[in-house]
């Protein structure tokens, strides 16, 4: 796919942001951040904790407003949440007082004028898609963490927004379920009729490689490195992971993490010293 000819969906243009003193003590800030996301592209923001990746996502979602510079979507400046974006977080993605079906319906209702029956059918279709048929009437607390996150993903996808913003959606899920959900997300995105534009925050290198078209490596409130992921869609985890190309690409990314992260090299030195 020749992506360079496709227009920009999201433009982050020289954005600076600092949390207000009352709530931001110790939270990361952004300085003169710029990047583009093309239409239909899957971009991952990766980096160590405190590098500003989640903050960047909150600006794209319109939950925070840039102090300086612009966030543009489809060329229009934006600084508030909008119906063209869907967001998923690591925790508390679901409203605990709504049953599973209701949680999904509630999302659809925000972006659609359809009648109750259609919304309900759509919600059930997406729940089936993520393998939650039969759990529609349960409350979130009755589900495991992995199942709850499936519901969040069903809600996100069912809203059929052009842009999906995902903030470490699999970060709190056990290793086995994480793999299942990654494959599920990949398959759903590849199968859907129109390609969605996705910005995905993670600190998991393998996850970023498997899912993204492009990886932005963040460090100290700026983008330190941009990497094009050299795999075609549709992707197959097995094939990618066992390929030589993957090993090389992964090493490159790994070295980035290692060289840039002062703390981790300190730890490495410490370990060497002990040995």
């Amino acid at each position: 796919m020749n992506v360079s000819s496709v227009k920009s969906k999201i433009e982050v243009d020289d954005v600076s942001f600092r949390y207000p003193a009352t709530e931001g003590a110790g939270k990361s800030q952004l300085e003169h951040l710029s990047f583009d996301v093309r239409e239909g592209e899957f971009v991952s923001l990766i980096g160590g904790s405190g590098c500003g990746k989640s903050t960047t996502l909150s600006l794209l979602a319109g939950l925070n407003r840039a102090d300086q510079g612009q966030v543009r979507i489809d060329g229009l400046e934006t600084h508030a949440p909008g119906k063209n974006r869907g967001v998923v977080f690591q925790h508390y993605a679901l409203f605990p007082w709504m049953r599973v079906r209701k949680n999904v319906e509630f999302g659809i209702r925000q972006v659609s004028e359809a009648n109750k029956k259609d919304i309900r059918e759509k919600a059930e279709r997406y729940l089936k898609l993520v393998g939650l048929e039969g759990s529609e009437n349960l409350y979130p607390y009755q589900l495991s963490g992995g199942m709850q996150q499936r519901v969040s993903i069903a809600r996100l996808l069912s809203m059929e927004t052009e842009i999906l913003l995902m903030d470490e959606p699999f970060g709190a899920i056990d290793a086995k379920n994480r793999v299942v959900l990654q494959d599920l997300l990949l398959a759903l995105l590849e199968r859907s009729a129109k390609r969605r534009t996705v910005v995905f925050v993670t600190h998991d290198i393998d996850e970023a490689i498997l899912l993204s078209d492009r990886i932005l490596f963040m460090k100290d409130a700026r983008i330190a490195e941009t990497l094009e992921v050299p795999f075609e869609h549709p992707r197959n985890r097995e094939e990618i992971v066992t390929s030589r190309q993957y090993q090389e690409f992964r090493r490159r990314l790994f070295n980035l993490f290692y060289d840039f992260e002062g703390e981790e090299s300190e730890i490495a030195k410490g370990i060497e010293y002990i040995i």
Partner: peptide, 13 residues
């Protein structure tokens, strides 16, 4: 919870 509130705000209610 901040994230719960953000989830709601992100839905543009």
């Amino acid at each position: 919870d901040r994230t719960l509130l953000d989830s709601a705000r992100a839905l543009d209610l």
